[in-house]
């Protein structure tokens, strides 16, 4: 196969675009897709302060590399959830990348703050592991961005993640989630803007980008994600994609263009107010993070102190 741009040997084929690229032009393709997403969805402007949630995996590290290459001011936030060796290894990948690119990295660690991991908080509060983990991460991302004065929280969700989530939401008609599923959630009532600049790129592309650019990412998956239904949705979409390239693109980007507006309106946006304990936005008197952490016998305010001292 030949590169669409220069005719030299191609290293990767992008079937949904009927294209193949050599290394140099593939990197250009990834940069272009990120730029297009950032502009199309008005995610951020040059000069704005971005806080990128970094897991040490291929998506967040590829995105960090792209944002730095494009000249954006993107600092990293690594959240250590204390999931055994997996967390230790992923943290190392994030720190190594930050060191190599001389980028600023904030680290907020549950084990260092509380002496326990996210599994302990889940168990003590009687909530499922993955939903507790999601809650803790979302809370720390928003709190860190607002405390440290960032304009937006950036996450590495890619086209496969978003198409998979959309399929899951559509299969059970989660109208509230469908209304909110967007690569740009504007700031509102104490919530910092949240954006997903990889929403036009598949995970084959982010993995290939890391390999081509020599970015060392963590290959293994979170051990708790085994059997997650999101992986089943991705499997189904990949089966469709291999029969009809472009299916994921049409499904997700088509939803944003043509479908999402049908879910707008109706019920009013929930009113948020400051949590009585921590001051972060919530619909309740006390936010779910504080309630869950208190149920585990811990002080929710300790994590805000940890954020303030998270360096970078």
């Amino acid at each position: 196969m030949r590169c669409l741009k220069c005719g030299s040997g191609a290293c990767i084929e992008i079937r949904r675009h009927r294209a193949a690229y050599c290394e140099e032009h593939f990197v250009e393709h990834v940069h272009k897709q990120v730029t297009r997403a950032v502009r199309k969805f008005k995610m951020f402007e040059p000069g704005e302060k971005l806080l990128l949630a970094v897991s040490g995996g291929k998506d967040s590290l590829a995105l960090w590399d792209v944002l730095l290459d494009l000249g954006y001011q993107a600092d990293g936030l690594y959240i250590d959830l204390g999931i055994g060796d997996y967390s230790a290894r992923s943290r190392e990948k994030a720190e190594n990348f930050a060191g190599a690119r001389r980028a600023a990295l904030h680290v907020v660690s549950l084990p260092e703050t509380y002496g326990v991991n996210v599994g302990y908080i889940a168990k003590k509060s009687g909530k499922p592991f993955c939903s507790t983990c999601g809650l803790v991460k979302r809370y720390i991302m928003n709190a860190a961005a607002s405390i440290k004065g960032y304009d937006a929280v950036v996450t590495g969700h890619n086209l496969d993640d978003e198409a998979g989530a959309l399929l899951g939401n559509a299969l059970s008609w989660q109208v509230g989630y469908l209304r909110r599923q967007s690569p740009n959630m504007p700031a509102s009532q104490g919530l910092v803007r949240k954006v997903k600049p990889l929403c036009r790129l598949g995970e084959r592309e982010t993995a290939a980008y890391c390999i081509i650019k020599g970015i060392n990412y963590i290959l293994e998956e979170c051990p708790m994600a085994k059997g997650a239904s999101s992986l089943a949705y991705k499997d189904v979409l990949n089966a469709l994609e291999s029969r009809a390239p472009g299916t994921k693109d049409r499904f997700y980007l088509g939803f944003l263009r043509e479908g999402r507006h049908y879910f707008q309106g109706g019920s009013e946006e929930p009113q948020l107010r400051p949590c009585s304990v921590c001051g972060q936005p919530t619909t309740a008197e006390t936010c779910s993070f504080c309630r869950q952490v208190q149920r585990a016998g811990l002080d929710p305010l300790a994590v805000l102190e940890a954020i303030k001292n998270s360096g970078a």
């Binding site: 196969m1 290293c11 084929e13 084959r204 991705k234 089966a239």
Partner: peptide, 16 residues
Amino acid sequence: NPEAVLVLKDGKPVTR
């Protein structure tokens, strides 16, 4: 499924 993997030869991706 080729959509779910990358194939590497000498550490670099290759086309099908």
